[in-house]
Design a binder for these strands. Structure first.
Length: 429
RNA sequence: UCCUCGAUAGCUCAGCGGUAGAGCAUCCGGCUGUUAACCGGAGGGUCGUAGGUUCGAACCCUACUCGAGGAGCCA
C-alpha cells in the first residue's frame, strides 16, 4: 500500500510504502534514524539492525542527504515524533544516490541560499512558507469567488505605464515600444464596467533599484475592481477580505505556522474586531506629536509607517491623502477636494503597506483635467471612453501577495515568500 | 542613485603585521532512541580582483568587482 506522509495517520498499525527523499540521517551503530520527506510532510523512519536484512541496513548506512528512496515500514503513533507518527522501516529501495548536497543542516548565508534557491525550497521552513503562500492564494480566490467577483486577466505587455511614476521594464513589441505591466488596474476598470465585480491575479514588474526587505522586482498582485462602489464600501470589502485570509490560514496551516514558529496572538487579534481608520490629517498630527518632522502634504516614508502602525493592534487604514501625492485617477473628496477618497492598509508588526485602494474618478471632465495636469499621452483614449459611455462611481484596490505572505508568516524579508525571487541584480536561478 | 557593513576550506565563521584555524559537510572507525545527535581520526586553502606601503600583508592604504542592510520609490 502506497501513501503520502500527510495521510500516514490513517495507516497506524499497517505496513505502507512512501516515496520521497532523505533530508537528514542520524545513526547509532545498530539503529539508524532516517529523516524522510515526500513533499507532503516529514517523518522519521527508524531502522533497527536486528529487524531488517543486512542488505537493507547496509544500504541505509550509505544513504546520503537528499538521496531519493522508496521506504516500506509499519506506521506507529509516537509521542516523541513532532508530527505524532513514526515509521518502523522494513525495506528500502534506492532510487538515486545524491552527490554531496550543498545545503547542509548547519546555517548558511543568504547569498549562498539564494544561489541554491532551487534546492533551498526543499527545506522544512521554505516548504512551509510556500504551502502557506498557496493557501493564501486559495483563500483570496475563495473570498472573491463567493462574493460575486469574476476573474479577468489584464495584459502583461502594455503600451505605457499605468501611473507614470515608477520605472518600467522596457521591451520591444515588434517595431513598437512596450513595457511589462506595473498594474492591471486601468484594464480592470474597463472589466468592471463589463462584469460588475472583477479581480485580476497576476505578476507585476517594477524596474526600481529598490533594495529593501519589502521589495521584489517581480511580484504578484490581486486587483479587485467594483462598479457602483464607494470609498467606504471599498474599505469594508478590504477588511472582510483580509480577515478571511487570516482566518483561513489560522484554520488550515497550523503545522506550517508551527514550523516557521509564527507567534499566533497578533494574527488571532486581526480577526477579533474591525480595523482602525485614521485620516491622513490625523496621522500627520500623530507623527508630529511623536517628534517626526513631516509637514502636511508630504508622503509617508518607511519610518513614518512604522511609527503609525505601533499605535494600532490590527491593520490600519490611512485614508484621504492629499491628491498631489496620489495617482491621477483617484476621486477627490467632495467635502475637501484637496484630498482623495482612497486608503492604504498598513499591516501590523512593521510590514508596511499591503493594500492601496481608492474610489476612481468617474466624471469625464475631471479626468480630462487630471490627464492634462499629469501630462499623460493619448494612449489613454480607451480609458476616457469608460467615462464617455455609461460612467458610474467605482472603486478598487491592489493587494501585494508577497507582502501579505511576509506579514502573515512573520518573515523578515519578502524574498522567502516567492519560489524564485527576482531581486535587484539577481536573476538566477 | 546615496549611506553603512562585508568578501578567509564545499558551508558558517575566527584570525587583524611574523609557519592558515575551528565547527559542519565528505571519507574511515565507534555507539540500540537520535532531534543542527555525539565521540575518535583523515583529506580539504592562489585569504574576492588589481596595484601600493613594509624586511615581511589574510591583516595597513587605493581602486575595482560582487553581496548584505537601510534610504528614496512603492505593493
Amino acid at each position: 500500500m502506497k501513501t503520502t506522509i500527510q495521510n500516514i495517520g490513517q495507516f497506524v498499525g499497517q505496513e505502507v510504502w512512501i516515496e520521497g527523499w532523505l533530508w537528514n540521517k542520524r545513526s547509532s551503530g545498530k539503529i539508524q534514524f532516517l529523516q524522510l520527506r515526500d513533499g507532503s510532510g516529514f517523518i522519521q523512519g527508524v531502522v533497527v539492525k536486528a529487524e531488517v536484512t543486512n542488505q537493507v541496513f547496509e544500504l541505509c548506512s550509505t544513504l546520503t542527504q537528499e538521496s531519493s528512496v522508496r521506504v516500506k515500514g509499519n506506521v506507529r503513533a509516537d509521542d516523541r515524533a513532532p508530527s505524532g507518527f513514526e515509521l518502523t522501516v522494513t525495506d528500502v529501495q534506492l532510487v538515486s544516490l545524491a552527490k554531496e548536497y550543498p545545503i547542509t543542516p548547519k546555517e548558511h548565508g543568504v547569498d549562498f541560499l539564494l544561489d541554491h534557491r532551487h534546492l533551498w525550497i526543499r527545506s522544512p521552513r521554505q516548504r512551509a512558507i510556500l504551502k502557506i503562500r498557496s493557501e493564501i492564494i486559495k483563500a483570496m480566490r475563495n473570498f472573491l469567488d463567493e462574493n460575486g467577483f469574476v476573474q479577468v486577466d489584464p495584459p502583461i505587455l502594455t503600451p505605457s505605464s499605468c501611473e507614470g511614476t515608477t520605472n518600467l521594464f522596457h521591451t520591444k513589441y515588434f517595431d513598437e515600444d512596450a513595457f511589462l505591466t506595473q498594474s492591471g488596474q486601468l484594464y480592470m476598470e474597463a472589466a468592471a464596467m463589463a462584469l460588475g465585480r472583477v479581480y485580476s491575479f497576476g505578476p507585476t514588474f517594477r524596474a526600481e533599484k529598490s533594495k529593501t526587505r519589502r521589495h521584489l522586482i517581480e511580484f504578484w498582485m490581486i486587483e479587485p475592481e467594483i462598479a457602483y462602489c464607494t470609498h467606504a464600501e471599498n474599505m469594508a470589502i478590504q477588511e472582510a477580505f483580509v480577515q478571511h485570509i487570516v482566518r483561513h490560514i489560522l484554520d488550515n496551516c497550523k503545522l506550517e505556522l508551527k514550523t516557521i514558529e509564527r507567534d499566533l496572538a497578533p494574527l488571532e487579534n486581526v480577526i477579533a474586531g474591525p480595523f482602525p481608520r485614521i485620516t491622513y490629517d490625523d496621522a500627520v498630527k500623530l507623527l508630529q506629536e511623536k517628534g517626526h518632522d513631516i509637514p502636511w502634504g508630504e508622503d509617508f516614508g518607511a519610518p513614518h509607517e512604522t511609527e503609525l502602525v505601533q499605535h494600532f493592534e490590527r491593520p490600519v487604514f490611512v485614508e484621504k491623502f492629499p491628491s498631489k501625492i496620489k495617482a491621477f485617477y483617484m476621486q477627490p473628496d467632495p467635502e475637501r477636494p484637496e484630498v482623495v477618497l482612497g486608503a492604504d492598509l498598513l499591516a501590523p508588526e512593521g510590514y508596511g503597506e499591503i493594500i492601496g485602494g481608492s474610489q476612481r474618478i468617474h466624471d469625464p471632465e475631471l479626468l480630462e483635467q487630471r490627464f492634462k495636469e499629469h501630462q499623460l499621452d493619448v494612449a489613454y483614449e480607451w480609458y476616457m471612453d469608460l467615462r464617455r459611455y455609461g460612467t458610474v462611481p467605482h472603486s478598487g484596490f491592489g493587494i501585494g501577495l508577497e507582502r501579505t505572505i511576509a506579514w502573515i508568516c512573520g518573515l523578515d524579508h519578502v524574498r522567502e515568500t516567492i519560489p524564485f525571487p527576482r531581486l535587484l541584480n539577481r536573476l538566477y536561478p
